[in-house]
Computed example of a mutant assay.
Amino acid sequence: MTAPHTEKLAILFADISGSTALYDKLGNEPARRLVAGCLATMVKEMAVHRGTLIKTIGDEILCTFPNPAAALEAACAMQNAIEKERPGGEQPMYIRVGFHYGEVICEDGDVYGDTVNIAARVASITRARQIMTTRAAANELPDDLRNRTRQVMRAEFRGKQEASDVFLVSWERDDTMSTRIGLPRFRKPSDARNELMLRYHGQTTALNEQHRSAVLGRGEACDLVINSSFASRQHARIELSFNKFIIVDHSANGTYIRFSDGQVIPLSHEQIVLHKSGSISLGEPFSDNPAELVEFIVQ
């Protein structure tokens, strides 16, 4: 473990727009392959521009850069690579990128603090095929890169009393209208509930902005206590992370997710985004017809 320290960095979030619809349309395995290919393209361009990958969160990457210029160049390279390489083949794939610059807390390979939260918020209001950033980042850009940004809105960020200026980055040579306006159908509706409901026998629990995580297992301290000898004491954790519900397996026997389309995803010390609805089996494959199932639905 490394001692926490403070450093000034550019924090960048990039995610695949419309991935939930992609899973619904293609099914889990084909969609996972396309998402993995798209993420690989993004990570490749990040590395070329001196980026450091902090984590992958479902269909999103969080990375750091030494300065906003490197972040902007990486973001533009990501957009151009997705456009040129077409990792989805005939299936259109679009990404959105948001970044911010400021002091962050670095500890054990992760980053924390207000700068990270603002970068995540900027990414969340960005549309498909867009790159957005903040005044703090734009002010640090050299003139040639600063000229590729323009202020497009003022946004309110949680914990901030005043609205902040948000800048759009031009990444296409001709700055087409699609870049200026974006693709609204791939932006999450502002009034979406973003809630996950879990049900196990007589127990129910909800994950949302107020209650962001739940532990599943046979230990009495778990949020959902599962009466199965196949379940570990603290078997799996579900958490709301940057607007996605992530389930992470911590068990000895694995966790099995069956989505509403019938496809089953086994997890062994891995994580996956929960979407739509389905059921979770702790320690037992669905082929063994487990009786102790946790039902979930994302609303």
Rank of each mutant, 00 (worst) to 15 (best):
S178F: 14
P30H: 07
H250V: 08
A70Y: 13
E284Y: 05
A21M: 08
V294I: 09
Q130M: 02
T149P: 08
I272F: 12
A31S: 12
D110A: 05
A206M: 13
Q91A: 12
G37P: 12
A81D: 05
R218V: 04
A206W: 14
V264L: 05
K276Y: 14
L72N: 07
Q299W: 12
V116T: 01
L196Y: 08
V273N: 04
S260N: 12
N67L: 04
P66T: 04
A31Q: 09
H235Y: 01
D249P: 00
K25T: 13
G254I: 07
S213G: 06
E295Y: 12
V116R: 01
E292Q: 07
V294N: 03
I247E: 02
R212D: 09
L12A: 07
S19F: 07
K244V: 10
I118K: 07
G182I: 00
I247F: 01
S277F: 06
G109S: 09
H100I: 00
I238D: 06
S19N: 03
R129E: 12
H250F: 10
M78A: 04
G37V: 14
R258W: 00
I247Y: 02
S19T: 05
A123I: 01
W171V: 00
H100E: 01
K244Q: 13
I181P: 06
L196P: 03
D174H: 12
F167N: 02
T133G: 03
M42V: 10
E209V: 07
M93H: 03
R158P: 08
S164L: 13
L12G: 02
D59Q: 03
P266L: 08
N147T: 15
R96W: 02
N227D: 15
V43H: 08
V298N: 03
P285C: 01
T115W: 03
Q79E: 05
P92G: 02
A138F: 09
F259G: 03
S277W: 09
Q271M: 09
R199K: 14
A231S: 06
D59F: 01
F296K: 04
A138D: 11
L12Y: 04
S232G: 12
I125L: 10
N243S: 10
P68D: 00
K276H: 15
T176G: 15
K160M: 02
Q151C: 12
I61Y: 00
L145T: 08
E60H: 02
A77C: 05
F259Y: 09
